[in-house]
Structure formats: structure tokens, C-alpha cells
């Protein structure tokens, strides 16, 4: 099938099937995933990802009614799209598409405007919190999965792939016909997330269940506990510049509370700016 070319700005043209070009990607065999979350832990350990944000995570769902039930899992991460929306929307060239298929972030250019987070259809990006344990770690910039480019360039596989006990995550060059991912891609039926958006993801799934991959379904079919936890999560972040409307309380009070939260965030932010200034120039 001929693909529409949608390369803007710092996007290199998509390299799918291009001779001589590399296209690193991942195939996740969901038949082998046991939901142990060790990929999440490995990723957190590899990068020291702060609490509350994730570069990769595992969704779980219960399917069917007793006795015919099944628990299904779906590891999620940045899809390293061939046509990434985040890259073309970044105003400061902070994120770019590497010619080998990685979508990478440059902290020193990022201003934390979160345009890329708004653009990303996969929730793959997050803003690093202001407070971190190490003094020289980046704060308040957008971060994302790098597909462990630092390991790949030394000939290793990404940390999540190495940690996967079931061998569900398979990493490699999708353009190399001898690689395991290319052979799987040739043999199996692959599914990608949100194919209709034309982002052409480099992360694909084998044996995916549409009910866990579908966005509206994920919203409507949640347990009551998950709904309550989400509200708690948002209430805990009251006062941040992120305004959220809490589900089930969509009243005038909620809109007013958000506005008050915005006003209350002003002194917090002023302190952050002051601290940053002190760190930069007066330390």
C-alpha cells in the first residue's frame, strides 16, 4: 500500500521498507505477556523516572464472566511513530525524529510548554515534576521513552526488553529481513494503536484485544475503584497549573475551584522560578 508522506519540520521521512535505512521498533507479543510489570520497573530503574509519571506502563483488563474469564494485558509506551505529531508541533525544535527510527527529546531546548503532550495521541509524554532527588536532574521539561537509544548504540536491547520474563517484547530493526521483529512481522498479524491517525507507529502488537486497545472502550469500561482512584489522583494535584475537572462533580463549584487553584498556583510557581534563577546565576 502506498503511504501518504507527511514529513514536516524535523521529521525525517518515514523509513519503513526503505532499503539501506534502519527502522528500530518493537513487536509486543501479548500472548506471552503475563502482566508482571517488570518492564515498568526496569524502565523506572534505568532512567530514574520520578513518581507519578511513566515511560512505559501496563494496562490490564478482565474479560468474560465466570467461569469463562481471562485477564488481558497491554504494555504501552511511546510508539516512535514514523510521522510523529509531537515533532512537527514543537515550537523550539526540542524533539526530533532520528533517522534510525527513534523519536528523541532534547532537555536543553525544551521549555515545558507541553504542546507535544497535547499532540501525542498515545499519552507517551510526561512533564518531569519540579522536585527531584538529584540536584542536577532535569525538572519541568517534557520527557518520553527513548527506546533506550543509549543501550541500542552499544549493541544492547532496551531495558524493558531485557527485563521481560516471558519474552513478550521483541526489539530489532524492522527493515532488516533477518531480524526477529521483521520475521514476526512477516509471519504474524500485527496490530498498532490508533492506525486511523496515520502516525505509522513502530511499536506493534501480536494477539492484541481490541477491547483494551480502543480508546472509548477504555473510558466507559472501567471499574468503580479505578474511577475513584483517578479522582483522587487529580484532587492530589489541586493547585498545579494543570486544571482538571473531577469526574462526577462537573458543577459550578468545580469550575470555580479550578480557577482558585490557578490563582493559588501563582506563589508556588514564583518560588520555582526564583529557585531556578538562583540555581542558574547565583549558585
Amino acid at each position: 500500500m502506498r503511504e501518504a508522506r507527511r514529513s514536516y519540520g524535523l521529521q525525517t521521512p518515514g523509513t519503513r521498507g526503505m532499503p539501506g535505512a534502519k527502522r528500530y521498533g518493537m513487536v509486543i507479543d501479548l500472548r506471552k505477556c503475563i502482566g508482571c510489570n517488570s518492564c515498568m520497573v526496569a524502565c523506572k530503574a534505568e532512567f530514574g523516572v520520578p513518581m507519578g509519571v511513566w515511560r512505559t506502563w501496563v494496562k490490564a483488563a478482565d474479560k468474560g464472566t465466570y467461569p469463562n474469564t481471562k485477564r488481558i494485558f497491554m504494555p504501552r509506551m511511546c510508539n516512535h511513530c514514523d510521522y510523529p505529531v509531537c515533532v512537527r508541533n514543537c515550537p523550539t525544535q526540542a524533539t526530533y525524529k532520528h533517522k534510525d527510527g527513534f523519536v528523541l527529546q532534547r532537555y536543553n531546548r525544551c521549555i515545558g510548554c507541553r504542546t507535544c503532550m497535547v499532540a501525542c495521541p498515545y499519552n507517551a509524554r510526561h512533564l518531569i515534576p519540579a522536585k527531584r532527588t538529584g540536584k542536577n536532574l532535569p525538572t519541568q521539561v517534557v520527557d518520553k521513552c527513548t527506546l533506550c537509544v543509549h543501550r541500542v548504540k552499544k549493541g544492547l536491547v532496551p531495558a524493558c526488553v531485557q527485563a521481560c520474563v516471558g519474552g513478550a517484547r521483541i526489539f530489532g530493526d524492522l527493515n532488516d529481513p533477518n531480524s526477529e521483529v521483521a520475521q514476526l512481522a512477516a509471519r504474524e498479524t500485527l496490530m498498532v494503536l490508533k492506525p486511523e491517525l496515520g502516525t505509522s507507529p513502530s511499536v506493534s502488537y501480536i494477539g492484541g484485544d481490541w477491547e483494551i486497545m480502543d480508546e472509548p472502550h477504555s473510558y466507559t469500561n472501567r471499574t468503580a475503584r479505578l474511577r475513584e482512584e483517578f479522582n483522587t489522583f487529580k484532587r492530589n494535584h489541586d493547585g498545579d497549573a494543570f486544571g482538571d475537572i473531577v469526574e462526577g462533580e462537573s458543577t459550578m463549584a468545580e469550575v470555580g475551584k479550578n480557577f482558585v487553584g490557578f490563582l493559588r498556583s501563582i506563589p508556588h510557581k514564583a518560588k520555582e522560578v526564583f529557585d531556578a534563577y538562583v540555581n542558574l546565576y547565583l549558585r
Binding site: 511513566w54 501496563v58 490490564a60 485477564r71 477491547e211 483494551i212 469500561n221 479505578l226
Partner: peptide, 10 residues
Amino acid sequence: DESVIISNVF
């Protein structure tokens, strides 16, 4: 039968 999401990050 429809599946129910039991665990996810926010």
C-alpha cells in the same frame, strides 16, 4: 462479554 479495565496509570 465486554472487558473491564482493572488497572491503568493516570
